[in-house]
């Protein structure tokens, strides 16, 4: 693993900032344009969820450099209300804010690995990885 950098999510504009930084990382690592768009979209979803449901939090990036593969690891962390029923929020169309409910199930499909760790009253951590296709 090379480095870790984080972007704070405090204001609505930080959603745009986070996805732009994420795309730059993705480009540097060698992702193609479609995967760059997938990564930027996933970050946008995660950052917006932080902004909407937890108020503040951060998105962190880490480049994974293994002998046989490279990838981008994205971590979304907040100290918001947490998610009580994870299988429910992973359903397409489930939303408590009148949204499309496409965000979390979408991120899972946009990325290669996806995990949610959440405790009600404490916060949520979403870890996701995209691998560079050879």
């Amino acid at each position: 693993m090379d480095f870790q950098s984080c972007v704070k999510i405090n204001r609505e504009w930080d959603i745009v900032g986070a996805r732009q930084i994420g795309r730059e990382h993705a480009k540097k690592i060698g992702f193609g344009t479609v995967d760059q768009a997938r990564i930027a979209t996933a970050i946008s979803e995660l950052a917006r969820n932080i902004y909407l449901y937890a108020d503040t939090g951060k998105i962190c990036f880490e480049i994974i450099n293994e002998i046989d593969r490279k990838g981008l690891w994205i971590l979304a962390v907040d100290n918001g209300p947490g998610i009580a029923d994870i299988s429910q929020v992973m359903e397409d169309g489930f939303s408590t804010s009148g949204g499309l409910g496409a965000g979390l199930p979408g991120v899972k499909r946009l990325m290669d690995q996806f995990d949610i760790i959440s405790e009600t009253g404490k916060g949520t951590e979403i870890r996701t990885v995209k691998w560079v296709r050879k």
Binding site: T41, L100, A102
Partner: peptide, 10 residues
């Protein structure tokens, strides 16, 4: 690329 991500989002 945008068309493809929209499909991923469902």
């Amino acid at each position: 690329a945008v068309a493809m991500t929209l499909i991923d989002l469902g």
